[in-house]
């Protein structure tokens, strides 16, 4: 039986059960968090790095986790921040413009042996990459992760009204991009 988040946090804070609790947290969230990260950073290699960093942060900071937020929201927030930071850091390290970086990311995606998408899916990823950061995140969480506005709102700490507007704009831009307008 899967433990609730409250049980896992309590277990993590028990002396001697920390490792067991963390292993359970990892097993509970690893796939969801991986796919969330992968949708942002696109290639498996990038996602693997970010995923490991994100869970190390969870390990290092879970002791101080205040239970006024839900565990899954908190982990998603860490994973989102790590993914965004990773992309910014990589762009900075490469000393390229945002357009050049988009091209680099797209090339990496197409070359990734763990990308099985057809032309349409490639075009979709390219369109998503052209969105402003917030619209991109909202679109990815809604469309790919199939999250509710309420869940996205907790993770991004933004009102659902604003998220609905962002998602609407994102969809319109993606449709336009995919039609080649």
């Amino acid at each position: 039986m899967e433990h609730t988040d409250t049980e896992l946090i309590r277990l993590f804070k028990e002396p001697g059960d920390k490792h067991r609790a963390f292993t359970l947290i990892l097993k509970k969230y690893r796939e969801r968090i991986y796919w969330h990260i992968r949708n942002i950073v696109l290639t498996h290699e990038n996602a693997d790095d970010v995923m490991q960093n994100a869970f190390l942060k969870v390990w290092n900071h879970l002791d101080g986790f205040r239970e006024d937020a839900e565990l899954y929201t908190w982990i998603y927030r860490i994973a989102t921040n790590e993914s965004i930071t990773f992309l910014k850091q990589e762009k900075r390290n490469l000393h390229v413009s945002i357009d050049e970086y988009r091209s680099i990311l797209m090339r990496s995606l197409v070359d990734d042996i763990y990308f099985d998408g057809d032309d349409l899916q490639q075009k979709l990823q390219e369109a998503v990459l052209h969105l402003p950061e917030k619209q991109r995140l909202v679109f990815q969480m809604k469309y790919f992760d199939d999250m509710s506005y309420e869940e996205v709102s907790k993770i991004l700490n933004t009102s659902t009204g604003s998220l609905k507007a962002s998602y609407h704009h994102a969809v319109k831009k993606i449709e336009k991009y995919m039609k080649g307008d």
Partner: peptide
């Protein structure tokens, strides 16, 4: 449209736990 290597999630779990032990 994405996939992962075989047994990736089991392996990454071990790697993360190993990194924690090292830390």
């Amino acid at each position: 449209a994405f996939s992962v290597p075989d047994h990736y999630f089991e392996r990454v779990t071990d790697e993360i736990l190993h990194s924690i032990e090292l830390e």
